[in-house]
């Protein structure tokens, strides 16, 4: 559960960081990707941070969230399998006795 929370927290932090950069207008300063540098040095930093935030939000965060979902689904499936096996095992024990 702790790992799941940490993963979800990471994904939310990445998305929140990107949202803040977006509100600060950093998206307009990503011209460095094509060698078109903004006039102010601060804008270069904002643009670089936005690029990192964007790829974090598009590539990293969804994978983390999906992994949490897959893990949760795996846990549920394993629990059901255990519950399904438990009565059979007790029946087997009774029969062997």
């Amino acid at each position: 559960m702790t790992i799941r929370r940490a993963a979800a927290g990471t994904a939310i932090a990445i998305a929140a960081g990107l949202a803040l950069l977006h509100l600060a207008g950093a998206r307009a300063h990503v011209g460095l990707l094509s060698g078109t540098l903004p006039a102010a040095r601060l804008d270069v930093g904002l643009g670089a941070a936005y690029v990192l935030g964007w790829f974090g939000a598009v590539l990293v965060a969804p994978i983390v969230v999906l992994a949490v979902l897959v893990d949760a689904a795996w846990g549920k499936l394993a629990g059901r399998l255990q519950r399904w096996r438990a009565p059979r095992r007790s029946v087997d024990v009774v029969n062997n006795d």
Binding site: I3, V58, L59, L66, A67, D71
Partner: peptide, 21 residues
């Protein structure tokens, strides 16, 4: 086992997301 399961989940998630992105 928890570690292996975590890595397995990450791999499955990465494959699913990369293939559909």
């Amino acid at each position: 086992m928890r570690w292996v399961r975590g890595v397995g989940c990450l791999i499955v998630a990465a494959v699913l997301w990369t293939a559909s992105l």
